[in-house]
Every structure is written in C-alpha cells, then in structure tokens.
Amino acid sequence: MPELEQAPATAADATKNANGNYFVRFTREQRYMHATLFTTFLGLAATGLPMRFSESFWARKFATGVGGFGAILFLHKLCAVVLTIAFLIHLKDVVQRGIVNREKGIFWGPTSMIPNWKDVKDLFGHTRWFLGLGPKPQFERYAYWEKFDYWAVFWGMVVIGFSGYAMWFAPFFAHFLPGWALNAVLVIHSEEALLAVLFIFSIHFVNTHLRPDSFPMDMVIFTGVESEEEFKHKRTKEYERMVAQGKQRSRLGIAPPLWLINFSKVVGYAALFVGLTLLVLTLTAYFS
C-alpha cells in the first residue's frame, strides 16, 4: 500500500511549502481554554439534556447506559466544576492583563472583545452584503458574531453557573434568595442551557466551521495558526494593521505538524458529531 504510506508525507511537505507564511491567531492558553470549554460543554450538554427531557425515550436509555441518574448528575457536576475553574482562570487572566499589567487592547481597541461602533457598522454592512446591497465588510481580529459568541458564553456561564450552584446548594442559597427564586433557578438554568445548546450546536458550528469559507472545520482554534492567504482573507483589517505596524515577524508561526492536524480533525469531528447528535435529540424531544 505505497499510496497510503506516502500520502501523509506528501501532505506534510505540501503544508510546509505551500502559501509560505503562517501567522499565530490563538495562543496555546487560548486553545487549551477552548478545548476545556468545548469538552466540558459537551459533557454538560450530554448529561444535562437527559435531565431536561427526562421523559424522552433516549434520556432513559442514556441514563441506564451510564449507570443511572446518579452517574449522570455526578458527571454533570464534575464538568460544571471544571468549567467553573476554567472560567475563573479566564477572569483572573483578564484582570491580570487588563487591570494589573495595564496591557493595551484588552478592554478597547481593535483587539478587544468589547463591542464597538465598528461592530455595529459591520453587522449592518454584512447584512447588506448578504442581500447583495453592498461590499463585504473587512473584519478585525474578532468579528461581531465572534464577540457575540464570546459574550453569550460569558453571560451563559454566569447565569447557568449561578442557577446550577443555587440548585446544588439550595439550602445555603435559601439564606439570601426568596423562596420563589428556588423555583425560578430551574427555569433559568434549563432555558438558558437549552439556548446555549441550540446556539452552539447550530449557529456556532455553522458560522465558525461549516460555512463555505471554513468548511468542514476551521482548524485555527486547534492549531493556533492560519496561512497568510487565509488570514488576509478572513481578517483583512487585522492583517493590514499588522503590515502597517511592521509586526509580521512577531506574529509568524510554524506550519502545524501533520499529527496536530490529524489529532485536531479527530477531536473536532468528534465534537461536531456529538454536538449535532445532541442537537437532533434535543429537537426531537422539544417538538414531540
């Protein structure tokens, strides 16, 4: 089978030589954060949805499969604790860089996650482009839909996390919450989680990975680097700013090794598969 043996080597050479430069888009820490986020999110969704739709046929089968409800709740809480720690680390990182170190570009400017006037213009400009009424906007490091993703997850973690812990430690939270709030936290927790599941497994998947520009998967969140051509095309404004400031050298990265591409593909496709399966199950349970 010479083709199979030769194929990877050829592919690796191709990635090294083609397009020349690779630029770093995500740091190692950011990639690990995303990995932690999506693994725990998949875990939380896979264990949370059977509880939300506990009367559907697949919920009981799944629950029995993993060792009953006790096991499901344990895994749910485990993922929740890991995600909480990741969230706190991120908060600490933001405070450290933005407030303690007074690093520029954390709270404002083109590299910030905080929405600005350009995002509003981009949203309308993008919509005009969808309808063929204007040119395609040029995006900076984080486009408006990516900022929405970030803040949706940020808000979601606060809301789902707080309501989740309020249920976990209900007698403690009852010291400072009114009685009806104990009823409300379940509604908040499950509705917000349902929104998160539906949003991530349909809109985030399509916007980030499945749209024609990135189909079938945008590998940059796994490898951290993007080819010069892709970078220029997707983040035109950021690329132009980098060139104008002469900072290409500091952003240069190395072409991702083949093992990392393959590993990322396996992990990414698995996540897509699990997510889309959960999406189908959720929709069937919701509409039945």
């Binding site: 059977p50 506990s54 009953g68 006790g70 499901i72 009823n183 379940l186």
Partner: peptide, 12 residues
C-alpha cells in the same frame, strides 16, 4: 420540577 426530572430517569 427537578424532583420529577430526576425521578423519572431511573437509577436514582
């Protein structure tokens, strides 16, 4: 309620 959601899953 949570009582029912947990209760109907089995094993708990």
């Amino acid at each position: 309620t949570f009582h029912s959601q947990l209760g109907s899953l089995g094993g708990y």
